[in-house]
Structures are given as C-alpha cells and as structure tokens.
C-alpha cells in the first residue's frame, strides 16, 4: 500500500484529528463550544476550522495547487493572525498535520513497513511548502493590519496619539526642525488648538 492510498483511506480520520488538534490550540473552555455549536454564524471560528481542514488536506494530497492552498489557508490564518497567538503558533496549524500523520503512520508502518520513505518525505515536503504559504498568508494579514493603522493615521490627522495636530502642520513642523509652523494651512483648525 502506498502512502497516497493509505491517506485516502484514512482521510476522514486524519482530518478529524487535525481539526481536533487545531481546536485544541484554543482555551479548553472554548474548544467545547467550537465543537458543539454548529451554526456557522453563531460560531464563525469553529465553522472556519471545521470547513477548511478537510478541503485543505484533499488539496495537499491531490492537486497540491499553491493558489488553492493559499486561499484555503487564508480562512484560518486570517483569524489566527489577530488572535492571541505568537506568529509561530499562528502558522503551526499546518505542522499539526505532520504530527497527526506521523501518529497515524507509527502504528501502521511498524506493522507492515509498506510505506516508502520517499513517499513520506514527498508528502512532508508538501506540508512544509504549505507552511511556507501559511507564512505568506500570515504576513499579508499582518500587513493589512498595519496598512489599516497607517491608513487611519493618514486619514485621521485629528488624533495621532502624542501631539495631536493636523498632518500638514506636523510635516511642516518637522521641516522646520521643531519650530512652530506659522504658515500651516490650518484648514482643520487643529494647528492651534493647543
């Protein structure tokens, strides 16, 4: 039996295990809720996990198309990118699959030894590549976050933390190395609130 056949046979089991290990990266109190509330609007995060891991696994096993993998990863990683996770744990969902498969294989390999090393290495390389793609997705998400922050900073000149000034005022002040800019456009009136 080769690896592909083996994994196809075990597909549902492996996917379940994978879903479970992804869910378990969340607090125990939350995990139960993810599993039991099945309405995708009442439980968007749980739904995203359980609806994504299966297709992602199939994609890895069959087509292995980077574009499809990225867009599937996007659903999960996008959420994790704004949660409590460190970057490494945010993308670790991919490696959790490796762990699941190794756990599964351990029993069967030791029994008959029919699975070829190069098959396993090949599939693990796919997972590695998938992890790299997850990193891309993660970075894109984080860049959108910072893009939003920057955008806010530009669009909201009236509140910018420290010295709240109109943006053109700030720029001009900078040019004059700290001197008060008298020729600030002061369109917004903020230039001289304080």
């Amino acid at each position: 039996m080769n690896l592909e056949k083996f994994l196809t046979k075990k597909r549902d089991h492996v996917v379940d295990k994978w879903i479970q290990s992804v869910q378990e990266t969340y607090p125990a109190e939350t995990v139960k809720f993810f599993r039991h509330q099945r309405n995708r609007f009442a439980n968007p995060l749980g739904a995203a996990i359980s609806e994504t891991m299966g297709p992602l696994f199939d994609e890895l096993l069959n087509e292995n198309n980077p574009q499809n993998i990225s867009s599937l990863l996007d659903r999960i990683i996008r959420i994790r990118a704004v949660q409590e996770f460190e970057p490494s744990s945010a993308v670790a969902v991919v490696f959790l699959l490796k762990k699941v498969i190794r756990d599964e294989l351990k029993k069967d390999i030791e029994k008959d030894g029919l699975i070829k090393v190069e098959d396993l290495l090949e599939f693990e390389s796919r997972i590695d590549y998938c992890a790299l793609l997850a990193f891309d997705v993660y970075m894109k998400c984080r860049e959108t976050i910072w893009g939003n922050k920057l955008d806010d900073f530009i669009k909201r000149p009236y509140v910018t933390g420290g010295n709240m000034r109109c943006l053109s005022y700030m720029l001009k002040q900078e040019q004059r190395q700290g001197k008060v800019a008298e020729d600030c456009c002061n369109n917004c009136g903020l230039g001289e609130v304080r």
């Binding site: 607090p27 939350t30 809720f33 009442a42 439980n43 968007p44 995060l45 704004v82």
Partner: peptide
C-alpha cells in the same frame, strides 16, 4: 457565546 469579541478571540 453571544459576544463578538469572544467569538472572534476564543478568549474565555
């Protein structure tokens, strides 16, 4: 489980 911050963060 009704709070959008809980649903989005999973933080109990």
């Amino acid at each position: 489980d009704k709070c959008h911050y809980f649903l989005g963060s999973g933080d109990p």
